[in-house]
Design a protein around this nucleic acid. Structure first.
Lengths: 153, 153
DNA sequence: CTTAAACCCTAGCATACAGGTAGACTATCA
DNA sequence: TGATAGTCTACCTGTATGCTAGGGTTTAAG
């Protein structure tokens, strides 16, 4: 399961991309619109700011804005940033590879051979999708009315 | 990350399919060959037996055997059985669907739209692979010598 | 200059799950 | 009858998740 932290972050980024122009959006506004616990979201947005994805302004009239354009925000890396490696096995991780200590022979490991294919597909999907792509997908789904998820891919 | 429970189970099943003929294989033998903690593996094999995938014989000369042929053991369901749903979101689960309580509109949910594609790919891979397929893949990898994981898919 | 809005930062906390371990009991075979 | 091997119950420890509390600090507006 994708942790709530990453889910909330995704929703918040999409919210900023869609509704936040140049004016900063306060945490409370995002929290309310997306039904996310405000204090928790605060911590998440702070992490994104420290990672250089968001900019913040303090004080009255403050809030968060995107620091990068949506085209430059890769969602695979977003999730990695907040919730660690995407791989189902340490020995399949692109960014945090390490051998499984119990594995007798990595080359013929059943688990690795089973998971490799689907993990590659997942990487291909997540690492090539940007925030801009996702927003487009959402607006198509919203415009068309929702019928089938297959039509939104 | 795929839990150790499922990883151990996969290795044990492959071991049984490859090296266990009609004669029962004791837990200790599998545990040693695959470097799995014996008592933990015991519990796992018991679950597989209760699920109707393995048969057991007690006492001296006892052990576990496959109850189903490897062609009939689907690995997606295997993992579901031991570690719960495969889906990254409750609202994408084929076998355990339920709405995310915080989701404003499922049809235009950013997280769902992002994960749907890669999850579908994962299902396509795991739910169509049987134990027999995996064993074939392993023997090809073993026979050819390991060069690149891509050549083993 | 005060007040209210907002981010910043540190702590803590309840629950659940992962990944086991221990030990007694029972069945089977030589 | 002893050794082997599955069955069952119980427990345990560490770590992660998903938050909440509460203070501090900055900023803008009145």
């Amino acid at each position: 399961m994708l942790p709530m932290k990453s889910r909330y972050a995704l929703k918040a980024l999409v919210h900023l991309a869609r509704f936040g122009g140049d004016a900063p959006v306060p945490v409370s506004a995002i929290a309310q619109a997306e039904t996310i616990p405000a204090k928790f979201l605060e911590a998440i947005l702070l992490e994104l700011r420290n990672a250089g994805i968001l900019a913040s302004r303090r004080g009255k009239g403050g809030g968060y804005t995107l620091l990068l354009t949506p085209e430059k925000i890769g969602l695979g890396n977003m999730i990695r940033l907040l919730s660690g490696p995407l791989a189902p096995l340490p020995c399949l991780s692109k960014t945090a590879y390490h051998r499984c200590p119990e594995c007798v022979d990595e080359g013929t490991c059943a688990v690795r051979l089973l998971m490799a294919e689907s993990h590659a597909a997942m990487l291909a999907s997540l690492d090539q999708t940007t925030l801009a792509d996702l927003v487009r997908r959402i607006e198509r789904a919203a415009g068309w009315g929702f019928k089938d998820i297959a039509s939104c891919i």
